[in-house]
Design a protein around this nucleic acid. Structure first.
Lengths: 360, 360
DNA sequence: CTGTTAGCGCGTTCAT
DNA sequence: ATGAACGCGCTAACAG
């Protein structure tokens, strides 16, 4: 049916082995033969059979990229950066990115890992926060071990390392805790004392780490953890909207709201606006991630910047084995506080510490 | 090294063929044998070798998805929807999405198509506007023909059909022209007569179609095409910013600006703000696409909604052959005008038609 | 319903 | 530097 190596070999008057060598390039071949072969390839419009070569060589050109949802800019940027790093800077030799939307579901995550193992993927990049559930973490660690055993490189990007085993898995963790802490410290420095929090899904490591940073800042300032109400929900805009309304109901005296991420923050701003409150005059709002749209929001969002582009690219290079693994197989990506217009000092006309809101 | 079909067969006391049949499921197998096989699979932690089965069956589980840039929400949403449609609703049988960032470059597009042909991809979805260049269109048509000949389904999503050949390629075109026309008509109805345009890259079909719709509306209103200045650039925020400044320089009397897409529109708004102009009081601004962030912009963006989610999902189903192809192999996805807060009637204090700006 | 027999197209020794 | 031969792991006829 399709033209094969043998056809090219016949056309060029050489053996199939020679054609194979010319095409892979990793073997000495006489200049004359080489060009003869290449011409035959052109004339016959020959295209290598990937599956066949993957079978024979026991390795494929596929790299799996697991994300919660590519449509979410956070993951879109990450996935794009990984893909970019996989791309041949010169011409060939590049690997293909298989993007898988897990929706954050542990089952789907596991399922996709199996599918990728089936493809004999060269590497797998797991992005985004994990589910902080022991059973799932265990199942995941097992899968990762198997993949590593099968020769697949595994890179975690934006999540903590797997418990007790850098068995070949490399990790690029994000400093969610530190970033969140600095963010809350910024609000405290502005004078806020009643800070609400619209955190993300309760079970995610990302949520937990950011919340931990927030609480750490409160404690360090001598404030009780309950000094600010916390609501959990999804990581989408509507969760931000609903969360802000809930917060307002529970603690009408809030002067600031920190959101689990920028998308939530946008929802929070919308809810505040609809409630007749101005940002930041009446209530300050802050996000996390510094997604592209954040600086164009009105007011521009104070947030914590994660270098997603750089992190994704690095994850891609690590997946290719094109970059030296970090010492200890784990590197932490720093987060940077970005102060913009959505936060300011609280209005003095409001009572500074509207207590009695905790335990609401 | 790894456990193979034969190992499972031995363990279950059956032939390799039987195991294969159990796993593919498309062949009658006795219940008892089936469960015996499945148990052996479990015990041995057997995972099918994808490349081997792709080779033997002459088809793979891969579907290529070409986008300009997944990090761009437009493409992220599209890619996510395609991937979602590929996903097994029940459990197995799903295909994997290979996402390729072409950056809009014809060469890379062609290159990726070759890579996907090499993988013997089951289907390829080409998204986003094409480059309106005859040579490239020709090269592309050739590649598509080859892919189709090799049994790969080809779906175009968000771009016009390839000239003179539905050789197996299905098209989901977007009504860019109609949407743009209705958008400009909306501005005209509000009373605007001096409408600038920050169009996208000159060579893209998307840009051309939207611009054509804009001009059609102007003509229908009896206005000369030059009644509004047009600047070209990229499709990113900074192009919007720069474009708006250029527009302001060339035609200070503008009362409205239509942007090639929402991202550009955000840049336009920023430039306007920096120039001390209010949106929409001083200048109305409109975008295109209705990306998620558009309704959260301040002011909320008047734009033209493209049902990206639905279109992507449909493209995915067409790629799987799970949906009836549209009659004539081409379907047009309608665009819907979304009037929001960024457009309003022009200020009466400004001269209605500040002519003398054309040919600037 | 199940086993046997052939390849699928390529990489890779091992000779030469 | 090149060719011959084998096998990667699986599916698909074809028997039975």
């Amino acid at each position: 049916m399709a033209v094969t190596l043998a056809d090219v070999a016949a056309r060029a008057g050489v053996s199939a082995a020679t054609v194979s060598r010319v095409l892979s390039g990793n073997y000495p071949v006489a200049g004359a033969t080489r060009s003869r072969v290449l011409r035959a390839v052109e004339e016959l419009e020959y295209v290598v059979n990937g599956p066949a070569s993957a079978l024979a060589a026991a390795r494929s050109d596929l790299v799996g990229v697991l994300v919660h949802d590519v449509a979410d800019p956070f993951f879109g940027v990450l996935a794009g950066a990984v893909q970019g790093a996989l791309d041949p800077p010169d011409g060939v030799g590049g690997k293909l990115a298989v993007v898988c939307n897990t929706g954050g579901s542990p089952e789907r995550e596991l399922n996709y890992l199996t599918l990728l193992q089936r493809q004999r993927a060269a590497a797998v990049v797991l992005t985004g926060g994990a589910v902080a559930d022991a059973a799932h973490q265990e199942a995941l660690a097992t899968r990762v071990r198997r993949l590593a055993a099968a020769g697949t490189r595994v890179v975690l990007c934006g999540r903590p390392p797997l418990a007790g085993e850098p068995d070949g898995a490399l990790t690029l963790a994000f400093d969610n805790r530190g970033g969140a802490r600095r963010l809350t410290e910024h609000l405290l420095a502005l004078g806020h004392r009643a800070i609400g929090c619209v955190a993300g899904p309760r079970e995610r490591t990302t949520t937990r780490d950011r919340l931990a940073g927030h609480h750490a800042a409160l404690r360090a300032a001598g404030l009780p953890e309950e000094s600010g109400p916390v609501v959990h929900g999804g990581y989408d805009r509507s969760a931000g909207y609903d969360g802000a309304r809930e917060l307002l109901r529970r603690a009408p005296g809030l002067t600031a709201v920190v959101a689990g991420n920028d998308t939530l923050a946008l929802g929070v701003c919308a809810a505040l606006r609809d409630a007749g409150l101005r940002v930041p005059q009446d209530v300050s709002v802050a996000g996390f991630d510094d997604l592209p749209f954040s600086q164009d929001a009105a007011p521009a969002l104070t947030t914590v910047r994660l270098p997603l582009q750089e992190a994704g690219a690095r994850a891609g290079r690590l997946a290719l084995g094109a970059e030296e693994p970090p010492p200890g197989a784990v590197a932490t990506v720093q987060a940077e506080l970005m102060v913009r217009a959505s936060t300011s000092a609280p209005r003095r006309t409001k009572r500074p510490t509207p207590t009695g809101t905790a335990r609401g």
